[in-house]
Structures are given as C-alpha cells and as structure tokens.
Design a protein around this nucleic acid. Structure first.
Lengths: 146, 146
DNA sequence: CCTTTTCCGACTATTATGATAGGTTTTCTT
DNA sequence: AAGAAAACCTATCATAATAGTCGGAAAAGG
C-alpha cells in the first residue's frame, strides 16, 4: 500500500507550481532543486502531467511550466490518478462492468466489499484536498513560526 | 497504491478459517482450493500469520490451521499489517520520532499532512472490519439469494 | 509403515521502480 | 548570428519486490 515516487513527486511538483501560480513559467530545474527531486526524472513526470492537461510548458530559454487551472481547481486526487493510474487497492475493483468480471466470484466475494470501502475512503480524502488548500496550509505554518 | 497478493490472500485465508471457526484444524489444501490460491505460496503466508500469533497449526495427517482468537477479535487491519507491514502510503510517516526524520524537511513539508490523512482513513476502515463482520455479511448475502 | 500434512530453505521469472544518459528542438538574450 | 537555457524524446539499466515454484524434512494419524 505504498505510493510510488511518481505520485509523491508529482504532487510535490504541482504544489511547487501552485506556490508560484501567476508568476509565469517556472523552470523544471528550480522545481527539482526546491523539492529535492532528480531533474531528469522529474522531466518525465512533467511530461505525463502535461499530456494530461494539468500543466502547460514554455520551451526555450526562460521557459518552464505553469498550471493550466487555478490551484483550487486541481485536487491531489487528480494528480495521483494521472501519475499512478486509477485509485484501487485491488484490480478486481477496476471491472465496474458487472458482467466482465476478473475473479469470477464477484457475487460471492465478501472481501471485495472491504477493498471498495478502502478505495472510497482514500478517494474522498484525496479529492477533498486541492493545491490551494496546501498553499494556505503553508502560509499558516509560516505565520505560526514567526 | 495497490495491495499485494500477500495482503489479499492473507485476508482471504483468514476469512476462510473464520467461516470454519470451531471446526478444528482446517487443511491448507482446502483453504487454497476454496480461495483459489496456490497451495505452496499460501504455505509461506500462513507461516507469517502463525509467527504473528493469529493462527495455530496442527502438524501431521488431518492437521491444518485454526484461528487463535474469535473472528470478532481479529480485524482486517491486523492481518494487513502482518502481511504487508505498517500501513503508511509514504515512508516518511514511519518516523514517528520527530527528531529522527527521513526527509529532513518534516517541519516544512505540507504534503506529509495529506499522506497522514490518507493513512488514517485507511486504518480506520481496516480496523473497523473484523473477520466476524465478513462472516455475517456472507450469511446475509446467502439469504438474499434464496 | 505409509499417507497426509505442516514446515523450511533455496531458487527463479517477471515486472515496476527510479532513475541516468545523450541527444534534438525551441526560444530568449546578447 | 551565436550561444545559452530550457523543454522534449528515446533508450538503457540496476535494483528490488512480487508471486510464485521446487524439493525435501519432520511430525502425526490410521
């Protein structure tokens, strides 16, 4: 039940872009440095986020990345789903289609219900937190320190 | 964010033993057949559960496994923790000790809070469901069919 | 004694992860 | 126009985990 670095780094990078929202293109290099991520590796992840439409890129010198939507419009769940695929602790939950079942015992399988509850609780947490929420939290944290 | 087969099979096997609770030793072979799991592989998993104290074994012919506690006393979370290790979507949550930190930025890390919320929601779901709950659900399901 | 069963350790094929490497194209600045 | 800075793209790779398989040893019942 571990999140891979794809998900973690993806959220970290998007959060970084959210902190700089409205400041134009932010270079991948600076994001990687601030977040402590390999620049080359992050490059691949940004490609995924770009193709999914969550960030836009500006090529060339002084280029970089920026969010395509306001931070409040992007949830952590959105990012995780792009980076890690559908949120589902077990594969049999992916067969929504009741007829095309994976494990053939869907109707009798009791444990499936457990995994569905887990999935729902994860989803509701991740979808309830936006990048803007994280930025605000950061702000509060900073004020608490001073 | 996938559960491995260790966790899934572990829960399936324990659930099977719960269904047969009070009927003496249940052979691994029959559990493996009913649950559709490789017998040899399940053997390893049962070893883990035995060492953790959740099942006891009877060797020799007519031997098998049985739960050491009542089904109501064993939660799905207990089993998952034994099979998969501590429930934590990211490793930095394992350093409860505030001083010995993994990622060095614990105090400033905003995303850590997200993963903590995810962990808590998973934990509360898994710990709230006992093997007895699953058995009862099975019973209701069967009655619904008739 | 023989069968059934747990127990134990070693081995293995496949896959995902988390990168690294090297080069191409685009664009800004000088 | 030159050069630097940046995104973009493809390939490669080492490591670890997963999900087993295999072969046998020890225990206990009939």
């Amino acid at each position: 039940m571990k999140l891979s670095t794809k998900g973690r780094y993806g959220v970290a990078a998007m959060y970084d872009l959210a902190l700089h929202y409205g400041q134009g293109a932010i270079s991948l290099k600076s994001v990687a440095q601030r977040q402590g991520i390999s620049e080359h590796y992050l490059e691949q992840l940004m490609g995924t986020l770009r193709k999914a439409g969550y960030v836009k890129s500006v090529r060339g010198a002084q280029g970089g990345y920026a969010l395509t939507k306001e931070p409040a419009q992007i949830s952590v769940g959105d990012i995780i789903r792009v980076m890690e695929g559908p949120i589902a602790p077990v594969d049999c939950l992916l067969a929504d289609d009741a007829s095309r079942t994976f494990c053939s015992r869907v109707d009798i399988c009791v444990t499936r219900g457990v995994w569905a509850k887990v999935r729902d609780s994860i989803t509701s947490v991740l979808d309830s937190i936006s990048l803007d929420d994280l930025c605000k939290e950061e702000e509060e944290k900073r004020q608490g320190d001073e």
